[in-house]
Design a protein around this nucleic acid. Structure first.
Length: 599
RNA sequence: CGGGGCGUAGCGCAGUCUGGUAGCGCACCUGCUUCGGGAGCAGGGGGUCGUUGGUUCGAAUCCAAUCGCCCCGACCA
């Protein structure tokens, strides 16, 4: 049993001005953390206690499928050279030099180290599969740390790595992680969705992110009630069929004078057509990575990329960049003039010389899949103050290719079941993905297979952000309280709260109250409940406020009702209070906690 | 790295424009009263005004440089 009077729980009445995000304010006010520098936080008693509980849950679940390691955070340069990431990680990696002048780095992740162990120790297929994990501090020199514990430069990560003989084995290791992750997040009381994700700089094929919807999030995800979920960078939808406009005149593209009308809305209003019947032109330049030598050789370091979308649709630059094979930037005015021979506002497809193939030189012209099969659209005419009617893609102009390059919108039917999509900000709390052979191959790991032949093991890599679980639990709860009109209030799930119950003695100067509180706390502790006794010589109001601030899910007030042999039990998760006879409190709490852990 | 903002007591802020040697609320300490929703009264402690340099008789205040933090963007597991 812990006595509040002896603890260091520095709660604040007001949040420091630097804190903007809800969870950041609350973590500071509740005395969980204090800031040391940008993206660097000290975890105080309560913060550390909550994080330790999360770590325990993760460890317990991970132990059902893997083995816990603990690797050095300080890594020699050589290992990272082997995978090509010493330079690949760029300035996001903290680097340092030892007294002998040797280069070292602070690890951002541990594929290299795990693979180096696998390389030197794994010899036979009989040793596979292996799942190795650790819970360890990671260092990343973020360009912009922000939002309290959400994006920091030093954080705790559970990272695991699987080594399998073949793809079927990897599928299984991946599936087991998927299952365990879901159990971990459920036990931490999070409402999450698993989304298909972009594999990013880590390389690999299949990949899934575990996300918690919250306004503080940095990612946008789309999900539907039917279970479809994807990062907006990847999400698609099934669009209802659009009835095309009737052709005018002889049905061939027809010039119309549109003086001063440049935007989709202006042209639409001027001609009396809806945006769905218009086609918008987006002009970019793509810069190919040096690594893609072939591409750079045939089509040049940079090339023009022109995308056509429905008038009411938004371009998804991530998708387009994927198609174009490099980084995008908007075209400059001179480049527009060269490619289109027309000013922005009147750009269109006619007269463009499209590259016949992505790997062939010429302007890369991409038609969004939503325009495939559409007819008689309105587009720019590549002539100042003129637009065209009756433009039918694939008949009147040939793009290099047709691809999905747009962002889905809220409410559109999901591609699987047609349920409306919900789009919202979310925080990534976990990521699992199939790495493939990237590291085992580049670092030369191999085992002998059944036939005595050298075989490269296939790898998977799986991460969980420990602090992010705490942060998103707070965000999630604060949003619920906010919905009930209570701002800056939250309560943590008992599984991860620093304490499950706080016993508030309303007035410690009344000896009976204090004695009853101590007695009750002792009983709860003896029953295995994590209890905090608030025995401070403070006014009741102060203690109630503090109990709420630190997010403990259950509060037992020992006060005036003790005269009737009762104490007041508040379930902050539901807001429900009830008076319970002192003798029945332990049982009552056990029932409440049990119900909560099942929920 | 581009754009914006801010550094004055533990926290929140005023004072800076118009230079004259620092103030308010909360917190903290002491005493009395109060005691189930951030108490009241009285007394008290605490600040190199981010740092460095310059202008001036005199700088929190004006000028320059520099460091740090926050936000938007770019980037990112």
């Amino acid at each position: 049993m812990h006595r509040w009077s002896q603890l260091f729980i520095p709660t604040l009445r007001e949040a420091p001005a630097d804190a903007e995000v809800t969870s950041h304010k609350l973590l500071l006010r509740a005395g969980y953390i204090r800031q040391l520098g940008a993206g660097l936080y000290s975890q105080l008693f309560l913060g550390n206690r909550a994080l330790n509980k999360i770590v325990s849950i993760i460890r317990e679940e991970m132990d059902t499928i893997g083995q816990e390691f603990h690797l050095p955070a300080l890594n020699p340069r050589e290992v990272w050279e082997e995978s090509g990431r010493w330079s690949g990680m760029g300035s996001n990696m903290f680097r340092l030099t030892d007294r002998k002048g040797a280069d070292l780095c602070l690890a951002m992740t541990h594929e290299e180290i795990m693979t180096s162990i696998a390389r030197s120790e794994l010899r036979s297929y009989k040793q596979l599969p292996q799942i190795w994990y650790q819970i360890q501090t990671k260092f990343r020199d973020e360009p912009r740390p922000k939002s309290g514990l959400l994006r920091v430069r030093q954080f705790l990560m559970k990272d695991s790595y699987s080594f399998d003989l073949d793809e079927a084995g990897l599928d299984e290791s991946y599936r087991r992680h998927d299952e365990v992750y879901r159990r971990i997040f459920r036990r931490c009381g999070l409402e999450f969705v698993a989304v298909d994700a972009d594999s990013g700089s880590m390389g690999g094929s299949q990949s899934q992110e575990f996300m918690v919807y919250t306004e503080a999030g940095e990612d946008l995800i789309a999900s539907s009630a039917a279970g479809y979920a994807a990062n907006v960078e990847k999400a698609t939808s099934k669009l209802p069929v659009v009835e095309d406009l009737a052709a005018t005149g002889d049905g061939k593209p027809e010039l119309v004078h549109t003086p001063g009308q440049r935007t989709i809305d202006e042209v639409g209003a001027f001609l009396g057509v809806a945006p769905v019947h218009q086609m918008k032109t987006m002009a970019y330049m793509v810069e190919h990575p040096e690594a893609d030598e072939k591409q750079v050789k045939t089509v040049g370091k940079t090339r023009a990329v022109v995308a056509f979308l429905r008038g009411d649709h938004q371009i998804n630059e991530t998708k387009l960049a994927g198609v174009a094979g490099g980084e995008l930037r908007p075209m400059h005015a001179e480049e527009i003039a060269t490619v289109f021979q027309a000013p922005a506002g009147y750009l269109g497809p006619m007269g463009l010389e499209a590259a016949p193939h992505v790997r062939k030189p010429g302007v890369l012209v991409v038609l969004d899949a939503a325009l495939e099969g559409r007819t008689n659209l309105i587009s720019g005419a590549n002539k100042e103050e003129y637009h065209l009617r009756n433009v039918t893609p694939l008949r009147h102009f040939k793009p290099t290719l047709v691809a999905d390059i747009r962002s889905v919108n809220e409410g559109e039917p999901d591609p699987v079941s047609g349920e409306p999509l919900r789009i919202g900000k979310a925080v990534e709390i976990g990521h699992i993905f199939k790495l493939g052979y990237k590291y085992t191959k580049s670092m030369g790991a191999s085992v002998l297979n059944r036939d005595g032949k050298e075989t490269t093991p296939i790898m998977g890599s799986y991460g969980i952000g420990v602090e992010r679980i705490l942060t998103s639990a707070i965000e999630q709860s604060a949003a619920q309280f906010g919905g009930r009109g209570q701002t800056d209030a939250y309560a943590l799930p008992p599984s991860i709260a620093p304490f499950q119950v706080v016993v508030t003695v309303t007035n410690v100067k009344e000896a009976e109250l204090l004695a009853a509180g101590e007695n009750l706390s002792g009983q709860l502790a003896a029953a295995g409940i994590d209890v905090l006794l608030d025995d401070r010589d403070e006014r009741a109001g102060v203690k109630f406020k503090d109990a709420e601030l630190i997010g403990v899910p259950f509060r037992i007030a020992v006060g005036k009702k003790l005269a009737e042999g009762k104490v007041e039990v508040l379930n902050r998760l539901t807001g429900h209070t009830e008076d319970v006879p002192v003798a029945g409190v332990v049982k009552h709490m056990q029932t409440l906690l049990c119900a909560e852990s099942r929920a």
